[in-house]
């Protein structure tokens, strides 16, 4: 339970960054932190106490492995997060080139 709550605290740090900061790069960082917290929450849900990693060995029981399905889903999610980050970085570079700033409040003022 404490692990789940700490993971959600990490998520809320990223959410605070998105809601409160005005720099575009800071917003990208906040999205990255939220993505890390979501991935970690999935893996925490699948953990088994005194479990083994899901790789077959010679002498072992099936029942003592951790959950491999959540790890497979998170494997997809990491790549999706990387794609989202790269696309956002490209948009941020374009914003800097067009307006000369990373501040999201000045972008609307300079338009026109």
């Amino acid at each position: 339970m404490i692990s789940y709550m700490l993971c959600l605290v990490l998520f809320s740090v990223g959410l605070y960054c998105i809601l409160r900061k005005r720099n575009v790069i800071k917003i990208i960082i906040g999205i990255g932190i939220m993505e890390y917290a979501a991935n970690l929450f999935f893996v925490l849900l699948g953990y088994r106490t005194h479990g083994r990693s899901p790789i077959y060995a010679i002498d072992q029981e099936i029942k003592s492995m951790v959950d491999p399905l959540t790890q497979s889903v998170v494997l997809t999610g990491i790549v999706l997060g990387l794609s989202v980050t790269l696309l956002l970085v490209a948009i941020a570079i374009r914003i800097y080139e067009r307006y000369g700033t990373f501040d999201i409040t000045k972008i609307t003022k300079l338009k026109g």
Partner: peptide
């Protein structure tokens, strides 16, 4: 954390993805 939680695949993946996104973010800023 992935290593402690018995997910070595995710640990390798997270490490290399982190390095790549760090390089690109530094190039951007």
């Amino acid at each position: 954390a992935f290593l402690v939680l018995k997910a070595p695949d995710l640990a390798i993946m997270q490490l290399v993805v982190e390095i790549l996104s760090l390089i690109i973010l530094i190039r951007a800023t």
